[in-house]
Design a protein around this nucleic acid. Structure first.
Length: 579
DNA sequence: AAAAAAC
């Protein structure tokens, strides 16, 4: 009860450990929440942030028993039915996820399907990679050293494919270790650092990894550094600052791996400060996002700059709509497609629910009510725009919710970095953010996701809620919907159903979007078409200038907002009280 | 279908 009090008032200095176990105890009565013991255990066993990378392999992850009945639906039975529905008839059904063997951590079981010519045999263990591909022992040591026991589905199938230098389109659910599945082969292929005299691999960058957000690029970079620890590879997280150092050609030639967002890289290419003609590995993380129209052109420019004849390309995501897959496949050479589990589907470990809030005004009271009761921090809250992120965070602070943070791309680089590190340190209890956080970000502790604003696509939904339930842990996801969201509700509801969560009967009985709605949507579509048509005639330079102006305006607005907020800082430091 | 993100 004390914890409850502290939480709602936010007035006291805080022992998170103590707090969390008490809150969990509290929740225990509700049955659906993770058990107190598991919560306390997870917390006690928490690794320092620098070891996060190895979390996938950790044992002792609490998991719902397979035969547990939840909300009237037998998860096991449900899952079997869904698997039976698979439509890709010409696909080869490979092994199951290696994680399922008796004594091992209960990672979710996923079927793995592969498609393509001469698909390399998957491996059951990391050791097998040494025998087959001479994976350097220092890499194996890194894995073993940190308790990495068995490869996940995507790792056991993807790594051999990549190590045989084949192109790959990999689809695997959120939190199943995609990053390692492409980093390990890159590190193995690099051999000696470019700076070393032993290197016979030509000069200049040999691997490029692209990600859609700075935060994700940063996270990938960190994980890469962990694998490279003690080695002399130059692994560069591309930023304005690092790009500036490239003017010196000697500097560029010694880089081994670049991890970057597309536009940053394109800027350097255009400035003539970077050559990618020696790149042997070009990987796209969050591939469907990277192939969105807004990124596509930039990505294509990077691809065009990678002129090495033996370049290996690969794309990774938890979601890959048909459209994006078509583009991806056209970019790859004789590709292999690997699908772990079901495409565009969240993990069954995430308990999903829908909450009706009549309109936008009703959301805040609903959220405050929710946060006035015990919850498992940190909670990640998604909204649809930057201003809404700022103002919601503001409202929560005013309402006395402690340790509220905010993250969106309108913030400065430093603000964004600070927000992420508060999150990593467990100092944020409530993180309000936009789509910028929806993909790839791996905050181990996140147990709850709230979609305050309805997601704009199934893909967005899957990635957002995939911030929880990672590496075999449980998670909880709540999605608010208003009357206006109704036309899109059924689509999302089906996603919930497919992944083993329950949906109120009446939602399933909803008709397809009404004629009126469709007409409305049609109007928007036409208006957009007209708008686009108007733009077609314009030069790229004008478009670019407009884009820059738009972003400047946003930044100015943001600054004004911040100044207003100065009296009530977003970031509580644990000792602050409300006014 | 629409916003966000990328420099």
């Amino acid at each position: 009860m004390e914890a409850f009090h502290l939480l709602s008032r936010g007035g006291a200095k805080f022992d998170k450990k103590k707090f969390k176990s008490e809150v969990s105890l509290f929740n225990g009565s509700k049955g659906r929440e993770p058990k107190a013991s598991s919560s306390a255990h997870a917390l006690a066993g928490e690794l320092p942030p620098e070891l996060d990378f190895f979390k996938y392999a950790q044992g002792g992850i609490p998991k719902r028993k397979a035969d547990e009945v939840e909300g009237g639906i037998d998860l096991k039975g449900k899952k079997r039915r869904v698997e039976g529905d698979d439509e890709d008839e010409d696909e080869v059904v490979g092994s199951r996820d290696a994680q399922q063997t008796e004594d091992d951590p209960p990672m979710p079981r996923h079927r793995v399907t592969t498609k393509g010519k001469d698909v390399p045999e998957h491996v059951e263990t990391f050791e097998a990679l040494r025998e087959r591909f001479h994976l350097p022992s220092h890499l194996l040591q890194k894995l073993a050293q940190h308790g990495y026991k068995r490869p996940t589905g995507i790792q056991s199938h993807g790594i051999p494919i990549l190590m045989e230098r084949r192109d790959l389109a990999a689809i695997s659910p959120t939190g199943t270790g995609k990053t390692l599945s492409y980093l390990l082969p890159v590190m193995a292929a690099l051999g000696a650092p470019a700076a070393s005299s032993k290197s016979d691999a030509g000069s200049g960058v040999r691997a490029v990894i692209l990600a859609p957000t700075r935060e994700l690029a940063h996270q990938i970079h960190n994980e890469c550094l962990k694998l490279a620890q003690g080695r002399k590879w130059r692994i560069v997280l591309f930023s304005k600052a690092t790009a500036a150092t490239l003017a010196d050609k000697k500097v560029r030639e010694k880089i081994d791996i670049i991890i970057s967002t597309p536009l940053r890289l394109v800027a350097s290419l255009q400035a003539g400060n970077l050559e990618l003609d020696n790149v042997r590995h070009l990987f796209l993380d969050e591939a469907d996002r990277m192939l969105d129209t807004e990124f596509l052109e930039q990505v294509q420019e990077v691809i065009a700059a990678c002129t090495h004849p033996e370049i290996q390309k690969a794309v990774f995501s938890a979601t890959l709509p048909a459209n994006a897959e078509k583009i991806a496949m056209s970019m790859l050479r004789d590709p292999i497609r690997v699908v772990v589990g079901l495409k565009d589907t969240p993990l069954p470990l995430i308990a999903q629910s829908l909450t009706y809030v009549a309109d936008d005004q009703s959301k805040l009271p609903t959220l405050l009510q929710y946060l006035s009761q015990p919850y498992n921090p940190p909670v990640l809250i998604f909204v649809s725009s930057q201003p809404r992120a700022t103002s919601l965070a503001e409202e929560l602070v005013i309402a006395g919710v402690p340790n509220v943070d905010c993250l969106h791309a309108g913030m400065t680089k430093k603000e964004r970095e600070d927000a992420v590190s508060r999150m990593r340190r467990g100092e944020s209890w409530v993180m309000v953010s936009t789509e910028v956080m929806a993909r790839g970000m791996d905050f181990k502790g996140v147990r709850e996701v709230i979609n305050y604003d309805f997601p704009q696509s199934v893909q967005s939904y899957v990635h957002r809620i995939g911030r929880t339930g990672r590496a075999g842990r449980e998670g909880k996801a709540i999605t608010y919907f208003t009357n206006e969201d109704a036309p899109f509700l059924k689509t999302i509801a089906n996603v919930l159903l497919q992944s083993g969560s329950t949906v109120p009967e009446w939602v399933l009985k909803l008709p397809k979007p009404s004629k009126m709605k469709r007409r409305e949507m049609g109007k928007i579509k036409r208006a957009e078409a007209v708008n686009n048509a108007r733009r077609i005639g314009r030069s790229d330079a004008i478009k670019k200038r407009e884009m820059i102006a738009g972003s400047k305006r946003r930044k100015e607005k943001e600054q004004q907002r911040k100044e207003k907020l100065a009296a009530a800082p977003l970031s509580a430091d644990g000792t602050d009280g409300e006014s």
